[in-house]
């Protein structure tokens, strides 16, 4: 149960949000993830400031990993754009689920632009958990503070990972690079509560290497669409059978 909190002003709510971000488990998750992404960016020849810019503009680990690794291995921009787009579909229902919590009288569309852009898995999970305990008129500031806290964490640790990768001996540099696939694998597995998501995870892992082996174009898009649809199809069959 999250205890109800109150704030004297929007500023106080904002800083309350920042504090919540820095003391949450997602601080560690983001730090670890972005250390890995920083190392990845370094290894693929991306500049550390370009990475920082991508963190602020894109604000989605999976999309950034796809961007860095696919473009870095010479993927065609169109392929990469499609894969990035497909990886971002989850953002749509997340925004839809979050915005009603921020609605208030006099809330203008442009007030919601920042929360919309800031929506990411960490921010979304914590917002859904913490916002109900915050008075409605303070929620926007709190949410922005939370997002700001997470974004600074990610951007900062991106630099840490980048420069660590530059300086570490090969064994530890390899370990640092391994951080991204391993943490993504486990956090995706953890979020995969329903059968459809678990199946999608397995099918995606199985299909992607196959498609690469057979030199299929747009392999990420196909493994996503085919794997995801297959998983969804099985989910529907099971629903129909019960």
């Amino acid at each position: 149960m999250v205890t109800p909190r109150d704030f004297n002003s929007s500023g106080a709510a904002f800083f309350g949000g920042v504090r919540s971000a820095l003391t949450s488990v997602f601080f560690l998750v983001l730090a670890g993830t972005y250390i890995g992404i920083g190392a990845l960016a370094h290894d693929f020849g991306l500049g550390s400031w370009s990475l920082a810019l991508s963190t602020v503009l894109i604000w989605a680990g999976p999309a950034q990993v796809i961007l860095v690794s696919a473009l870095g291995t010479g993927g065609a921009p169109l392929d990469v754009a499609i894969a990035v787009s497909l990886s971002g579909m989850r953002l749509f229902p997340m925004v839809v689920a979050l915005l009603p919590l921020l609605r208030d009288e006099g809330r203008r569309l442009r007030d919601l632009l920042f929360p919309t852009h800031f929506t990411s898995v960490s921010m979304w999970v914590e917002s859904l958990r913490l916002l109900p305990a915050v008075p409605r008129e303070r929620r926007l500031a709190f949410c922005n503070g939370l997002s700001f806290g997470y974004m600074c964490t990610a951007t900062g640790f991106g630099f840490v990972g980048f420069y660590l990768a530059a300086g570490l001996p090969p064994l530890f540099a390899g370990g640092l690079l391994f951080l991204t696939p391993v943490s993504f694998l486990l956090s995706t597995a953890r979020n995969a509560r329903a059968l459809v998501d678990k199946l999608a995870l397995v099918f995606g892992i199985a299909l992607a290497p196959l498609l690469v082996h057979f030199h299929v174009q747009l392999d990420l898009m196909w493994s996503g669409v085919v794997g995801g649809t297959l998983a969804y199809g099985i989910h529907r069959l099971r629903e129909a059978a019960t």
Binding site: L201, F203, G224, H235
Partner: peptide, 11 residues
């Protein structure tokens, strides 16, 4: 969500 999960799994 299934498609997004499968893509990430592929990555």
């Amino acid at each position: 969500r299934a498609v997004a999960t499968a893509i990430l799994a592929g990555v």
